[in-house]
Design a protein around this nucleic acid. Structure first.
Lengths: 141, 141
DNA sequence: CTTGACCTTCCCATCATGGGAAACCCTATC
DNA sequence: GATAGGGTTTCCCATGATGGGAAGGTCAAG
């Protein structure tokens, strides 16, 4: 199987397969006489694993650990679970941040008259200097 | 005011101020005889605007539009509102994606025995080839 | 005049991904 | 056997927003 077939079979683009190989996430593929990378079912399996983990939002560093555990028959499932739950925590932190942004923006938008007049609470919020966002180091000197 | 003071007063790092200047997001600062960038209240105000917009998750391209509207006394508030609500939509799409990931991972983790045995539904999910994730182009030829 | 803090530009790195060029290879058709 | 088309290789560059750091110039206080 050439890289294009492996890409189609795994859902990982050929570009990314090469990238994963150079960064050591996946082992280097065997080569044909002409230098083409060659893949079998086993390799496609690994690529699918990576693809699925990416779809679940795991960063590549964590996928590296997951792959290692996957290949370790003496693994402790608790280690896998910890990686998964740590990632869930990270996801939830980001979700909370974004929800806070969305709530603020919805509030401001509700108060916006939404017509051809220039008055706009959104711009007023962004432009008001009262926030003193940068005050951490600019406090009373 | 030098760039360091402007950074402290606005909450935008000196590095980012220079970056915003080179990308044209903010106008080039005036220079002292020695070539130092010089900032006044007006410029700090702009930087705070950018900072607040970044905190609300707006991408820089959109901040560019927001800044233009901010400076346009003939603006229509509806245009601002549209930018804000489009961004809320984008946030919500990402939130939904991440929540789906978190839900899947929590389900899998609940089923994980969480001890020193190797059996793990998380790895089983990642490794199962039944998914055929890459099947879009690999279907019946 | 020295010292330390500040400023300048320039380059590099992140993270995961894509685009594109130049060269090479393989297969099918003529 | 020649040619065309599509696949593959490596290499370089770009993204977006941010930080790190080096080499060198500047300013203000002592």
């Amino acid at each position: 199987m050439n890289i294009g077939d492996a890409a189609r079979a795994s859902g990982v683009s050929a570009k990314m397969i090469r990238y994963y190989e150079t960064t050591g996430l996946i082992p280097a593929a065997a080569r044909t006489g002409a230098g083409y990378r060659s893949y079998g079912e086993r390799e496609v399996q690994i690529l699918r694993f990576v693809r699925r983990a990416r779809d679940l939002g795991f960063p590549v560093v964590t996928i590296r650990e997951l792959l290692a555990l996957w290949g370790d028959r003496a693994r402790h499932s608790a280690d896998v679970k910890r990686l998964a739950l740590d990632h869930v925590d990270a996801l939830e932190r980001k979700i909370d941040e974004m929800q806070a942004m969305a709530v603020t923006l919805r509030h401001l938008s509700e108060a916006c008259c939404d017509d051809d007049r220039p008055d706009c609470p959104i711009l007023e919020d962004l432009g008001r200097s009262a926030g003193r966002q940068g005050a951490k180091a600019a406090g009373p000197i």
